[in-house]
Amino acid sequence: MCSNHDNHDNHDNHDNHDNRRRHNHDHRQIGAAAEHYSAEQNTVPGQLFPLTLTVNGHLQQLSVRADERLLDVLRERLGLLGTKEGCGIGECGACTVIMDGKKVNSCMVLAAQAHNSSILTIEGVEEPDGTLHPLQEAFIEAGAVQCGFCIPGMVLSGYDLLARRPDPTEEEIKQAISGNLCRCTGYRQIIDAVKLAGRKMRNGGNDED
């Protein structure tokens, strides 16, 4: 029962070696990276395209591959490592950033789609002098942080909500962070933090109503 693995049909979903099927299962390979390459050609496409975007108020002009994601541009090209990759398929929300005023999963946005856009990442939430945003203060004070990996995405989801709804209900807060997974906290203290931040922002930094 000697078989060359390339022809092993029973395991096509899991086959690192089966190039023909790879395009259908890109996220099951190495993140989205596998899709970047044409297996038939076995070459790395080198063509670069110009990309202009504003990140945290700074204009950036870059050359990127057509298949790069916004997440890759932020992390690999701009060194903005606060944006995290947890799943690569838009399920966990760790890569949440704000693009032209709208919350997006940056793993699901191609860099080209962000052309001429304005992006806010976690690095742009605090004041330029390092003073924390009320949301960031509230996350610390409410005990909303454990491992911290989901926190940049959570903060940005809270930021997006509070920009629209300064005094959100508990249900609105839940809706706002429902695209962000957290395995450590059980969410309770994160909800409390967003509520507390709303109070702080309405009252100019004071958290009393």
Binding site: H5, N16, Y37, A39
Partner: peptide, 19 residues
């Protein structure tokens, strides 16, 4: 040299198994 090249190269490793 790049993660993308490593992904591609790993996918081209041909392993023959006897199940």
């Amino acid at each position: 040299e790049t993660r993308e090249a490593a992904v591609l190269a790993a996918s081209l490793v041909k392993v023959t198994y006897r199940e």
